[in-house]
Structures are given as C-alpha cells and as structure tokens.
Simulated assay, not measured.
Amino acid sequence: MSQVAEIAVDVQNAVKRYGDFTALKSISLGVYHNEFFTLLGPSGCGKTTLLRMIAGFEDVTEGAIFLFGTEIDALPPNKRPVNTVFQNYALFPHMTVLENASFGLEMLGKSRAEAKARAGEMLELVQLSQFASRKPAQLSGGQQQRVALARALAPSPKVLLLDEPLSALDLKLRKAMQIELKHIQRETGITFIFVTHDQEEALTMSDRIAVMSAGELQQLGAPREIYEHPQNRFVADFIGETNLIEVTISEVADGRAKCRIGGGHVIECDAPGQASGSACLSVRPERMVLSAGNASGIAVPARVVENIFVGTDIATWLKVDGGPEISVRISNSARSTIFEPGANVFVNFEAGAARLLMD
C-alpha cells in the first residue's frame, strides 16, 4: 500500500444515538483504497453500528461519512457502491449457487446471460465453480460463506463490508477462510472493511485495525504496532495475552522510567511524558525469559506455581517475590528449559518488552 494511498472511506466525527443511548461517540477514521481494514472490539462496542452506517442501514446522527471524497449520508443503501456480507450469509434456499451469485447483478439491470457469466467468474475466484448447480442446503458452512462472498463481489463494489462472516465456522475452517479472504482481497483490489471480536483473526488478516470499546476508538494502527505498542490498558488486555502489572514509578529521566514491582524489584522501561505515581506495565508472556540465576543483575526473583501445556508453548505461571502472579510463555521444544512447580527462578525482561501504561 502506497504511503500516499487514496482514502476510500472517510468517517468524520460520526455519532450514533438511539434515544438517550449513544452507541458511537464521535468516531473519526480513514480507510485506504485496496486496504484490508478491521473494526475490532467486544460485543456492544459499536463496530457493527459503524459498519451499518457505512452501508446505509443506519443513519448518522452527527458527523459525516465520505466514499472516495463524496458524502454518502443521504444515499440509500442500494445507491451506494458498497456491498455487505452478513454473518448468516442470507442465501436464497430455493436458488442454485449460480443463481444466488448472479441475483444482485440481475437486480441491477444486467441481462441474465451477462449476470451469469460474471457470477461464474466470481465462483471460480472463490473455488466453487463445480458446485454452481447445487442448492445452499447441499453445501458446508464454509462453502455457503464463499457463495455469499461471490454474490457480494459480482457487482464489483468499491468497498466490501463483512460483518463477522466467519463466526459460525469451526476453528479449522475459520483459519483456512481467513487466509482465503485475504487472498481474495488482494486478488480483487477491493477495499475490505471487516468486523470481528476475534483478536487473532484481526491480527492475521488486517493491514490496519481500529480497536473499539464502548462506542469509542481506542487505537488505530497496523497489527504489529497495536500488539507491541498498545496505547492504553484496554488495548493491551484485549489484544492477545499480556501481563498487567501494577507498579510505582520511582524515577523518570531521559525518557526512561524506573518502576517498582511488589517488594521493591525495579524494572526500567520507556516512559511517556506524563509518567508519575502509580501506573501499569504491560508485558507479553513471550517477551520474558526464565533462568536459574540472575546473571544480568536486574532479573526479578519468582517462584514457579504451575505449568500448563498449550501445544506449541508451555504457559508457566509464576509468583513474583512480594508481587503479583505473572505468566511466561516458553517454546515447547527440546531446547527449552522447563522449571517445575516450586522452583525458584529469575524473570528476565527482553529489551523493550515492558510497556508503561498510564490509564
């Protein structure tokens, strides 16, 4: 994606109210052309409401939404060059796969021959050409999802909106479809705006992620940026696994803070300008290393409480001396040293692992 990429969808100070309830609180964000953009957050955070406002199924109470520079607030859904793939797929059970895929084109006035030719191309894109004559009930959940995707892509919308389309699939199929969706987005060059509550799904598929909570935008950025540099406690806790450790800031100098944990153990980390008093450290479990000795002189002593086998990793739970319980992820390989419960160890933080959060 170019550094000067065109803005496909521009949401400016969008507010949505239902009576006295404010579902969206002045959301502003831009989605680039040919971007896989994800709205991520827990149930009830406003992400689907925002998607429906872009689609035209919900009115904007305040603010405005632009599509490639043109304000679309007054346009009805059928006049907007966007299509939506819903969670339940909304396929017509009495129609064949090909008829479902061509239905939208026929409604737009295309001839039946032209509509079916284009639908056939989309079925080939989603690898369902051999099922064109089947009815939806004869397909698996993943195949039905692909039919809905083909139908939405057939009119060549400028933007495709996807409202948790993978949530009904089993884990293995959902992971396969994540890769497939990303491939299709790149193949077509259409801007995708994807709604999910699944953090791993968002990290896997997205060019950028907007993390939302209680109707507010918490952070917007690339997956790695959000994972490695959360801006607040909500984002740190919601995205992946993390240890949130209460600390007291004892000293700040040259952009670095010394933070005391529990019984007085000191951890150094980068400090935002307003750092002082009590705060919270966010440390990812995989960014810590356990050792039997304190060779660095700055490791934190702890005792192993429990080891939990999670497949590729071992999750080791520790009780810091005079402090909290924390979790460390250790690779499940022959090269890894696994300490048994009750063992006294030292916890070493990788450089840049500790993220200081002031809220």
Results as ranks from 00 to 15, higher is better:
Leu128Glu: 01
Ser111Cys: 09
Val147Gly: 03
Asn100Leu: 11
Glu62Met: 00
Gln144Cys: 12
His94Val: 09
Ser156Ile: 09
Val97Tyr: 11
Gln87Val: 04
Arg80Thr: 04
Glu62Leu: 05
Leu91Phe: 05
Ala117Cys: 08
Ser129His: 01
Leu105Gln: 12
Phe92Ser: 13
Leu125His: 11
Pro93Ala: 15
Gln138Pro: 06
Gly63Lys: 02
Ser140Tyr: 10
Leu153Ser: 05
Asn88Gly: 09
Lys110Thr: 15
Gly120Arg: 07
Val97His: 11
Ala90Ser: 06
Asn100Ser: 12
Ala113Val: 15
Gly104Ile: 07
Ala74Asn: 05
Glu124Ala: 00
Leu149Gly: 08
Ala119Asp: 01
Ser111Phe: 15
Leu149Met: 07
Ala101Asp: 03
Phe92Lys: 14
Met122Leu: 08
Ala64His: 10
Met95Gly: 15
Asn100Ile: 07
Ile72Cys: 04
Glu99Cys: 10
Gly69Leu: 02
Asn78Gly: 09
Glu121Ile: 03
Ala113Ser: 15
Ser140Gly: 03
Leu139Gly: 06
Thr70Ile: 03
Arg134Ile: 05
Glu99Tyr: 15
Leu108Trp: 14
Ser111Thr: 15
Leu153Lys: 06
Ala148His: 01
Leu105Gly: 14
Met95Trp: 13
Leu108Val: 09
Pro93Cys: 14
Gln138Tyr: 07
Ala137Asn: 12
Ser111Glu: 10
Gln144Leu: 08
Gly104Asp: 09
Gly63Val: 01
Asn100Cys: 10
Met107Cys: 15
Lys79Gln: 10
Gly141Trp: 08
Gln87Arg: 08
Arg112Glu: 10
